[in-house]
Design a protein around this nucleic acid. Structure first.
Lengths: 232, 232
DNA sequence: CGGTGTTTTGACGTCGGTCAATATGTGTGG
DNA sequence: CCACACATATTGACCGACGTCAAAACACCG
């Protein structure tokens, strides 16, 4: 499993998207030697809230939902991670247990990189540390935006936003349906609302021809209308 | 302004609380020489959303609210920063404009540290970079919690949480009133609700003897009742 | 085919936002 | 120290958004 061109981090395209690109050739080699590649099937758990992580997970393909269980028993999806994203960095850096669960939405391929490699590189290669810092600063900014959206926007606006987000970050197929297919429950969980409320809004959008549906699939018809709706 | 024991970073107690403690003696000296101390009066702005920052602000005393304007024109307070916290790190790291505004809730004393010093140290001292990273990881975790709270908890629960947060992070005076005094509008803005809704809940808590009030001042009487309320 | 899980729709009640009126401060200058 | 203007706090009334419960329509599978 450790040979073959495409399983070497040095040659992995995915690396271009994340902080690993700031690693030196030597560091990458070391990581590549100690990493393991894992297939995660749709619905399977990568790690759980409260778990201690011994490394980070670099997503090569597929999509993962990062969620947190709230006191009332509902899952809140905090982030969707895709190709190139690194999961579990926070826990490794702050040496705490994970505050989120990661679960596969699609079939996924992820690389597990042991903690020690990451920590060692952080401590010796400032470029890498700064690169990680930059990514985390970005995440934090996004989190602030989410906080404001959650507290100030209506469910309808948030659903509209979620659809646009899905289109912009995951694209659509040749027939105009979103590439990323989430269950209604998952959509509700991203938006932070009850599944039924979410479904009702979807029907409304459909009736108004803002979107089309086909089974679970959702396609955006009138992007403009959704955008207009978002800014109150 | 650059002399006197207490204005040298090397001797500043506040430093113990933040990432500056990972700086070397030499780095600190340099920072101390180029920093400027500023008095910010209650209500004044430290920096605005959309502004480009040429450095970071280290809080020596007083409290600042970090807020973001939402599309519907309301301010959402994302974080309250106090002694030892460093403001504006994100912008400096990611070289973007600020996504938040910082305004003084109290009279404040802050030190402005030019960007170059911070960036240079980040690039050369891995200890410092990792320390900053650790702080940011912590902030991100807190942000996740806030997201879940905002989407899953009722306004009443969030108000209760806000009071406990204020007690735990800012303390109370000899008469049992919270040290940090926020206007009802600010409290509403932390909680993410309308001022009137917030006030109504405060009256309810008062009637039930969970809290007492005296002008703007709020004192917690039955901490337990508030805690119980929070977990649904 | 029945069984199980997801999507959809209906009905209903409550939470919370908005508008408006009143009270209570709080500061200003006379 | 008072009078006035202006900000903040409080309360009431109203209504729409959203969560909840329940049932029906559909799907997917063995």
């Amino acid at each position: 499993m450790k040979d073959g061109k495409e399983t070497r981090c040095e040659n992995c395209i995915v690396r271009q998207f994340n902080s690993l690109r700031a690693m030196s050739k030597e560091e990458l080699k070391k990581v590549s030697d100690s990493k393991t590649t894992k297939i995660v099937k749709k619905g399977e758990v990568i790690f759980q809230e409260g778990e201690k992580l011994n490394g980070v997970y670099c997503v090569r393909s597929g999509v993962s939902k990062l969620s947190k269980l709230s006191a009332n028993g509902k899952d809140q999806i905090v982030k969707l991670a895709t190709k190139g994203q690194v999961l579990g960095q926070r826990c490794v850096i702050s040496e705490e247990v994970s505050n989120l669960s990661a679960r596969a939405v699609d079939d996924m391929e992820v690389c597990f990189i042991p903690k020690d490699d990451v920590v060692h590189t952080l401590n010796t290669n400032p470029n890498f540390a700064v690169e990680v810092l930059r990514h985390m600063a970005h995440d934090l900014k996004e989190a602030d935006d989410v906080i404001v959206n959650m507290s100030q926007k209506t469910v309808k606006q948030r659903v509209a936003e979620a659809f646009l987000y899905m289109k912009n970050n995951f694209g659509e197929d040749s027939e105009g349906y979103l590439t990323l297919t989430l269950s209604r429950e998952d959509i509700a969980s991203v938006v932070g609302t009850a599944t039924e409320s979410c479904i009702r809004i979807i029907s409304e959008f459909k009736k108004k021809k803002y979107i089309k549906t086909s089974g679970k699939q959702i396609g955006i018809l009138d992007e403009r209308a959704l955008e207009d709706m978002i800014d109150s």
